[in-house]
């Protein structure tokens, strides 16, 4: 039973009614349930990625030299650009939620479109990175081409130590799973965009925008850790 009156509604703001499923008593109960469910789901996402991060730390512990020498082959600048892109998309997502809270229909649509665009930019940069790696024999695991990758490293003044196929295997799994989450994010964002264009969201009903936003922020959070660990840390 939140007070909508307290919120400053802009003139011209649109406030469509909230659809209420039969098994809920109040809109607040419905929205609260959805949001709580989303947070619990985010907890599962965090735990799932934590397994990958733990694998990374273990590999780093077992083969410190290998990890440090291998990561030099990753392009810090591309990683940095992607970080900025993803942070900005998180910002536009937050703005979309805010627009929905204020009943600014156009703002919702505009910001979700921006978020989707940034997501595509992110995937584009990833595509360039992946194909660049593949071109030099840097494949995950047993497909790793030691000869080609070794030459590529020497050209750039590095020496590959130990078993870099493990590092790159992990790199592709971590960024790959993250990429799958970005793609899933594009999917759900598109769904929300279609609904937003129909004018379904407003101050009384914006739970889908908010929950998709929460998911999108988690995708961002994972990247915030992936970036320094894979690209930067010496």
């Amino acid at each position: 039973m939140s007070s909508h009156d307290a919120k400053a509604m802009r003139p011209g703001a649109i406030d469509p009614p909230m659809p209420l499923a039969h098994h809920f008593d109040t809109p607040g109960q419905q929205a609260g349930s959805a949001k709580f469910g989303m947070w619990v789901f985010l907890a599962t996402e965090i735990l799932m990625f934590s397994g990958l991060f733990l694998a990374y730390f273990v590999v780093r512990m077992l083969y410190p030299e290998m990890v440090l020498s291998s990561h030099e082959l990753l392009d810090k600048t591309m990683g940095g650009v992607n970080t900025v892109v993803l942070l900005t998309s998180s910002f536009t997502m937050a703005m979309a939620v805010r627009a929905a809270q204020l009943g600014d229909q156009k703002g919702v649509v505009r910001n979700i479109i921006l978020t989707i665009l940034f997501a595509f930019v992110f995937m584009g940069v990833k595509y360039v990175e992946y194909t660049g790696k593949f071109a030099h024999g840097i494949f995950p695991g047993k497909y790793f081409d030691y000869v080609a990758a070794g030459e590529y490293a020497r050209e750039h003044g590095h020496v590959l130590a130990g078993k870099p196929h493990i590092f790159f295997g992990l790199y592709f799994v971590m960024t790959g799973l993250h990429g799958v989450h970005v793609l899933a994010g594009i999917g759900v964002l598109t769904w929300v965009l279609l609904r937003a264009r129909k004018g379904e969201f407003g101050p009384r009903y914006y739970a889908p925008v908010e929950n998709v936003g929460l998911y999108w922020h988690i995708v961002d959070l994972v990247w915030i850790f992936l970036f320094p660990l894979l690209y930067l840390v010496r």
């Binding site: 990958l52 273990v58 695991g141 047993k142 078993k163 196929h165 493990i166 799994v173």
Partner: peptide, 18 residues
């Protein structure tokens, strides 16, 4: 990770791959 290990051999769990 097990599926990836089995198909790609990334060397997290399989001692033969490190």
């Amino acid at each position: 990770l097990l599926m990836v290990e089995r198909t790609l051999g990334i060397g997290i769990f399989d001692p033969a791959m490190g």
